[in-house]
């Protein structure tokens, strides 16, 4: 057991944070700091890379090394940070907008390259910070401030996207399942290659209110009811599956990460000198 406490990873003076009451972001941040403490990682050895949005504010409260970039590009920045110094533990904290909407291209390519970093995607099915507009994960026919009558677009399954792209470790959980959340983050960080933890997280201010879930508690109860452990989910019929979503470790692969492969392919070329 590590002697470290989660508080070590927090800028305690910056709290209380800016998130709404009952927002899942605080719960994910709590689990992230707890995971870092249990992994006994020094704050100086961890770089938390954030994008823009509610969850993109997470770095404001962290005492790790941090990079707060532009909207959607967290994985591209993180790729450079990791390759610039492979000894660092690099974790990107992105919302559904950052990860798979504006940043969707970087997401699939970071997964395809299998860059050795961790993506913690807080999926609340909408853009909270800009006022509750729909994103690329908003389910079909959901009401948002840019789809008052319902969205005409189906949403992405973030984990399936990562699986198709080639990520090494893919897990999903919710902010209700806090113990699993912490453990999955720990496993994602220690698993070599591109690791994804998708966290279904309630936006209590916008998405829930517009879509028949008026309170924090009703949203958490919904998460509790809809989330089915992967083994059980696999046993369900396709019709049944449609009513639920799977949680737990969905994919675990051991493909070599980009940097390892790059060094292997280019090994032996270091001996060449400077051209005169």
């Amino acid at each position: 057991m590590s002697a470290r406490l989660y508080q070590e990873y927090l800028e305690n003076g910056k709290l209380p944070h800016m998130w709404c009451p009952g927002c899942g972001d605080g719960i994910i941040l709590r689990a992230y700091t707890e995971a870092l403490a249990e992994l006994d990682l020094a704050p100086k050895d961890v770089v938390s890379v954030t994008g823009i949005g509610c969850w993109g504010k997470a770095d404001d409260y962290l005492s790790t090394q941090a990079f707060h970039g532009t909207h959607g590009r967290a994985l591209a920045f993180a790729t450079g940070i990791k390759l610039g110094n492979p000894d660092l533990t690099v974790v990107t904290l992105m919302g559904d907008g950052d990860a798979v909407t504006i940043g969707g291209n970087h997401f699939i390519h970071a997964a395809r390259r299998n860059i050795d970093l961790t993506a913690i995607v807080a999926n609340n099915y909408n853009y909270g910070m800009t006022g509750g507009q729909y994103s690329a994960t908003t389910p079909l026919d959901s009401k948002t401030t840019t789809s008052r009558k319902g969205t005409a677009e189906p949403g992405f399954d973030v984990c399936l996207l990562a699986e198709a792209a080639g990520a090494n470790f893919i897990a999903r959980t919710t902010t209700y399942h806090v113990g699993a959340l912490k453990n999955l983050i720990k496993e994602a960080i220690t698993h070599k290659g591109f690791s994804l933890v998708e966290v279904i997280s309630p936006c209590t201010t916008y998405f829930g209110r517009f879509n028949g879930q008026p309170s924090t508690l009703s949203m958490f109860n919904l998460l509790k009811d809809k989330a089915i452990p992967i083994q059980k989910y696999r046993e369900m019929s396709v019709q049944e599956q449609e009513k639920y979503f799977a949680i737990g470790t969905l994919i675990k692969r051991e493909r070599p990460d980009f940097y390892t492969t790059y060094r292997r392919i280019n090994s032996g070329s270091e001996t060449a000198g400077r051209k005169e």
Binding site: L10, L15, P16, H17, W19, P21, G22, C23, G24, D25, G26, I27, R30, A31, E34, T175, Y176, V178, G179, K182
Partner: peptide, 11 residues
Amino acid sequence: RLCDLRCPDFA
């Protein structure tokens, strides 16, 4: 510790 882990506010 479920209340602690589930508290969004580190309170």
